[in-house]
Write a protein that binds this DNA or RNA. Structure first.
Lengths: 138, 138
DNA sequence: CTTGAACCTCTAGTCACTAGAGACATTACA
DNA sequence: TGTAATGTCTCTAGTGACTAGAGGTTCAAG
């Protein structure tokens, strides 16, 4: 059994974040010492590692909740879990696509201005003021 | 002179968002009718278009504030504006990089599981539980 | 047995909005 | 001119996923 600080060190999840996850129902309520401090075991560590890993991959708290619920029924079909992962993948791909468009636009804007002139003629500001100067929609 | 709703239609920025921008100091306080309703002119429209466009490109409210301040001194060097745009571009590139890593990882996880088995053997859940199953850091 | 670090709960703040309540203003039409 | 519908006003609270801080308690080392 170890303390919340120890759990924090091992998982690299900050202490207040662990308490937050408990409040959100991602982590079961921890056992307590007689002095009301949380104590964790290996199961708690594994659960939090799972959450941390999923968060790193961009899964929302809600999605993680669903995944955890699924974990608790190992006999069921794993279609639902695969669905969640796939839709997360789609979201990531959509974000990448959008960011690539922005990248092109921003790089065009940055390049258009060498930073040496005066703001009155600045291409950065002009581009932002006038959408028509853009190559494409975004 | 036109109303906030009209301005909203023309810029595609929602009415409460316009009021929010005013509160945040991005938009000057609008003139009012005798009945206390906001009225805008061409200058207000242009200013809001600028803000909208910059937000679309992912600039933070704070960055936009700086850009607007710069706009008000057309005699100064445009280096600062270029800096803001460039750092925004760097942020976007960093995000893309990170998301690409996630994409690879998620696609590996999704592919590992055809959704036909049972949760107890689900590769999606196993991958999330055990970081060691990952190809690389993320 | 004392000290100091770690822990507890609770509230409030972050960002960029969004939603809703309840009251007042404007506009279109009869 | 009357009225009904739509628009607008302010204010408060909620979103997601935390983070920061106050003020108090408990633990572990020496």
């Amino acid at each position: 059994m170890f303390s919340i600080g120890e759990l924090s060190k091992r998982t690299k999840v900050k202490v207040p974040t662990i308490r937050y996850y408990e409040e959100m129902g991602l982590l079961a309520e921890a056992e307590r010492t007689s002095g009301n401090q949380r104590r964790y075991d290996k199961a708690g560590l594994e659960r939090l590692s799972f959450i941390r890993h999923a968060r790193d991959l961009g899964f929302s708290i809600e999605a993680i909740s669903s995944l955890i619920e699924l974990q608790e029924h190992p006999d069921r079909s794993c279609e639902a879990a695969t669905d969640i992962a796939t839709s997360q993948l789609e979201e990531v791909r959509a974000k990448i696509k959008r960011l690539r468009t922005l990248e092109k636009e921003l790089s065009r804007i940055s390049k258009g201005c060498d930073g040496e002139g005066v703001l009155g003629d600045c291409y950065v500001l002009a581009s932002l003021a006038d959408h028509n100067l853009c190559d494409r929609e975004h």
